[in-house]
Structure formats: structure tokens, C-alpha cells
Design a protein around this nucleic acid. Structure first.
Lengths: 162, 162
DNA sequence: GCCATATTGACAAGATGTTGTCAATATGGC
DNA sequence: GCCATATTGACAACATCTTGTCAATATGGC
């Protein structure tokens, strides 16, 4: 880091004239990628002994609050329909979820948790809460909320120019 | 969102007793995944016409400031060695980078930019700066830095308990 | 210098995610 | 109700990423 800082003046010339906010945003993006990677790794670790992964857990969570179509769950999480479809199929094969009739769509079944799935969700929920509480206590609710807020605004700003 | 908020009390009971900070952290994780997805998508869009992707760009950036071994670049970015290796091989095949002798290691060559690669980096750098400045201006340098800071602390906290 | 240990790139197999295409179904304008 | 349009799941092909294994090389203790 102390080495890198000596590059900063040159870098901004090479990379192309960042404003202060632009440089801060760039730093944030780099850190975001790193944290995301760590987060997925922790999610995988936390669920491995139950045969799950972070991605499967995410889908489990999405359909847990209420049954959803595959496309609906994908939209909610910002993942591709097809990817969620594959994970949902796996969840069904594994007895964690099941397809149930959708009153609003004859073909697009809803993905719902089975009893096994609900129990799994409960267990993972408890585990997640212990972890979240511990990590959250190290940072503080206020700062965490402020961070979430910035990320949300960032996402909106990103979507405008695409 | 207004619907979801009515679920919150029940959810915390089902999912397992979040503290205030724990709940805030959980929100943050969910948003983090979303923003990360958006960010990668924007990176892909910004580089597509040059035959690049967000992942390739990231490696380009890592070896751009100074040549690095594949393993070193991977460590710096928190990616797997093998993944970076594949991308580096592609960069070399495409004439963007080249393997150069490493004075410190006979086998582990350094990945360095070619002239083509340096020019590409410059072009992408300019493009990125325009984008970063525009988005950064919508949020503000102070908040962006505060956000980066929280993410860094979060990452440290995560790594402790793994 | 010698040796146990860690790091590195190479390679292969498999898991995971993406993209494109299609027909079935739903939706909204008329 | 009819029709143009959008959404959906199914399927296949492909790209990308991960995991495991191996030999070559470097490093640090002695």
C-alpha cells in the first residue's frame, strides 16, 4: 500500500484523469469485488456440511418467504433465469423444494419448500443469524445501513447509464 | 418492499433472532450480491467492443501497474490461481500480454503488457475514468470512501472466522 | 550445503453460469 | 373475442470457474 501510493499521481495520469469522487468510486469497485468473493466463500463454507452452496442457499432464501416462479426468483436476485432454473431443479431433485401449481400461470409452476426444505431453511437461518450478529457487532448497525444505502444508490446510478 | 416489511417481524422469528446490527449486515450482504452482479455486467458492456470482459480487464489492470506472476496477481485480487492463469494465457494469445523472465523465479514467469496491451489499458482507463467520474459525482467522494472503509473492515471480520 | 515445506505453473475433470432458440402461455390493445 | 407482444420453462451449446493432482522450483531451518 505504501508502495502503491507512490504510484497514484502517475496512475491518474496514465489511467485518465479521475476526479476525487471518481477515484473513490474506483477504489470501492475493487474492494467490492474482493468482499463479494470472500462473502461467497464464507457462504459456501457455512453450508457445505449440509450439501449446499451459497448460490443454492440464496435461491432457498428467495422461495422461502413465499413460493415463486423460477423467473420471478431470478428477477428478484438479479440472476439469470436459466441459472436459477438449474438450481431449482437440483433443489427439487434433492427433496428440498417442489413444483406446485400456479393459479396465475398454467405452465410456470411455483417453486415451494418441502417440509425438509423448510427445516433446512430454519437451520441455515439460525446459523446465519449467529454469524451475522457476530460480524455486525464488529461494525455497527448505523454504518452498515449507511453502506447499504450507498450501494443501493450506486446500483441505481449504474443502471441508468446502461 | 412495503409488502416485504410486513414480513420482517415474522422473518426474524423464523430465520433466527437477528440483532439490529445482524439484520443490517444481512441486508448489506443481499445488496452486495446485487451490486456486484450489476458491476460485472457494466464492466462486460464497457469492454465488449474491444473483445474484453470485466474479468480480463481486471487482470489487465493488475499486471498493468507492474508485471506480476500469475499466482501473485491472483492473490492480489482474491481470485483463484488457475482462473487467472487461463485469463493470462488468453491475454498472451491475443497479443495483449507476454510472459517475461522472472529474476526471482526460473519457472514462474512474469506476465507483462505488450505495447498493444499498454495502449488497450490506456483506452480502457480513459473510458473507466469517464464512467467513474460520472457515477462518483452522483454519490460523493466522502460517502464512497466511508463505504470502502466499511467493506474493508467487513472483509477482515469475515476472514477471522473462517 | 541439505532437507522438509511451501509455492508455482501445467493439466485434466467436473461444476457452475451464460447465451441462443423454441414452443407454450399470458397480457393488453382493440 | 382476436391478435401482436412479452414472459416463461425446456433444451442445447458454450464459456467460465473450481478442484484436484503433479512435478519443478524456491525458501528457510539447521
Amino acid at each position: 500500500m505504501s508502495q502503491a501510493s507512490s504510484y497514484l499521481p502517475r496512475r491518474s495520469a496514465v489511467a485518465g484523469a479521475h476526479t476525487e469522487a471518481g477515484a473513490a468510486f474506483t477504489e470501492l469497485v475493487i474492494e467490492l469485488f474482493r468482499v463479494n468473493g470472500t462473502m461467497v466463500a464464507v457462504g459456501d463454507d457455512m453450508t457445505r456440511d449440509l450439501g449446499m452452496t451459497a448460490a443454492r442457499w440464496q435461491v432457498l432464501g428467495a422461495i422461502g418467504s413465499e413460493p415463486k416462479t423460477v423467473a420471478g426468483a431470478a428477477r428478484q436476485m438479479g440472476l439469470t433465469r436459466q441459472n436459477v432454473q438449474r438450481i431449482a431443479d437440483w433443489l427439487v431433485e434433492s427433496g428440498i423444494a417442489e413444483f406446485v401449481d400456479n393459479p396465475n400461470h398454467r405452465r410456470a409452476k411455483l417453486v415451494a419448500l418441502t417440509k425438509t426444505g423448510a427445516a433446512l431453511r430454519l437451520q441455515l437461518g439460525r446459523r446465519q443469524a449467529r454469524w451475522a450478529n457476530a460480524v455486525g457487532a464488529h461494525v455497527g448497525a448505523g454504518e452498515l445501513r449507511a453502506t447499504t444505502d450507498v450501494l443501493k444508490r450506486l446500483k441505481k446510478a449504474l443502471e441508468k447509464r446502461s
